[in-house]
């Protein structure tokens, strides 16, 4: 057999062995045998001296070609084997992706707080300051400064928690108005504030009454503040809180600390105004009280009512949450069943 035939046989045999190798080890054995230092191709080269000189060049070329071919096939066979091994391992690692994950507890914001935070951001966006005041308040700020002199029917001892002869748990957030106006330096600009917080009334707790609840007070005082400014502001609040397509109406009302006084209704978001149980068939839902700050209130705070005017509004955060989320028992806010609390998570932003 001449070298050309041997090369031809080796080519067929080698390719078959590469193909048949089933592990990286056996493939390596094949590699050593074919292209190793003592392998078949090397041996053929060693026999070159027996080849006619004019054919040596050709043999050399053929050997090199075959070496390249073997190396190429060996490399791809090796890649193939590694890939298979990985595949096998990954298959063995299979899990049931439909089993549930391991969960931590997920926190939640109190529904009243959701309303409060949202309104705070809304008003801050309109350059209102958020101001706090004491909950144990003097009669002076809770009543007198708000145009509720002694003997005013709204000052019934029955309705308010007194802690001593002159102090009480504030029955409204309005005293913060008086405190803020008293301190405000109008030389540094007009006053725009809101004040959220707890208030207390001497009511027995039931589905619609709570001896403790939360209000938010708003106040704007400047040289040119009018009822139309109040109307524009309240409409924005209503649309922000209850939907852009809500209609609003202002009704005359009465509060000792504002004159004129109004209440705002929004068209019922349940029935759209046709009348239903939620709006008591009126098509309207009362959402807040407001008005032009009474001149006596301005004067009491040392502000000249002939120069300055202002508007004020007060809204119930509990009431907003009740309306917005369709809550039917105010006690749910304070008994805090976690299943009740956690349903509002999606409302947070």
């Amino acid at each position: 057999m001449d070298l050309f035939d041997r090369l031809k046989d080796l080519r067929e045999q080698g390719l078959a062995e590469i193909k048949e190798a089933e592990s990286e080890k056996s493939l390596n054995d094949v590699r050593v045998k074919l292209v190793g230092k003592k392998g078949e191709l090397t041996q053929i080269l060693h026999q070159m001296k027996d080849v006619a000189p004019e054919k040596r060049r050709e043999v050399g070329q053929k050997v090199n070609e075959l070496r390249d071919l073997f190396n190429e096939k060996l490399a791809s066979a090796k890649d193939n084997l590694i890939e298979k091994a990985i595949e096998a391992r990954l298959e063995a690692e299979k899990i049931d992706v439909t089993l549930p994950g391991r969960r931590k507890h997920v926190g939640s914001k109190h529904p009243i707080r959701i309303i409060q935070d949202d309104l705070e951001r809304f008003f801050i966006g309109m350059s209102y300051q958020v101001v706090q005041g004491p909950e144990i308040e003097s009669e002076h700020y809770n009543f007198e400064m708000l145009n509720l002199p002694k003997d005013h029917p709204a000052r019934d001892m029955q309705a308010t928690f007194y802690v001593d002869a002159d102090h009480l748990l504030r029955s409204q957030t309005s005293p913060v108005q008086a405190r803020t106006m008293e301190k405000h330096d109008f030389d540094k600009g007009d006053l725009k504030m809101i004040s959220p917080g707890k208030v207390y009334r001497r009511d027995d707790d039931d589905a619609t009454h709570s001896h403790q609840f939360m209000q938010m007070e708003g106040l704007v005082v400047g040289k040119n503040i009018s009822l139309s400014d109040l109307k524009g502001t309240l409409e924005l609040v209503a649309k922000h809180e209850f939907g852009q397509d809500r209609e609003t109406r202002l009704r005359p009302s009465y509060f000792p600390f504002t004159e004129p006084s109004v209440e705002m209704d929004v068209s019922c978001f349940e029935c759209g105004g046709k009348g239903c149980a939620i709006c008591k068939n009126t098509g309207w839902i009362e959402v807040l009280g407001a008005g032009i700050v009474h001149p006596n209130v301005l004067s009491a705070a040392g502000i000249d009512p002939s120069v300055y005017s202002g508007f004020a509004f007060g809204l119930g955060l509990d009431r907003f949450a009740i309306l917005k989320y369709g809550i039917d028992d105010i006690r749910d806010f304070y008994s805090d069943d976690v299943r009740f609390l956690q349903q509002f998570r999606q409302e947070e932003d």
């Binding site: 801050i124 350059s127 600009g189 400014d229 109004v262």
Partner: peptide, 19 residues
């Protein structure tokens, strides 16, 4: 009150926010 315009307070430059 329906006939009263809706306007916004012209209070000049104020910065809102929390303490």
């Amino acid at each position: 009150y329906d006939n009263i315009k809706s306007t916004h307070p012209a209070t000049g430059e104020l910065i809102g926010g929390y303490a």
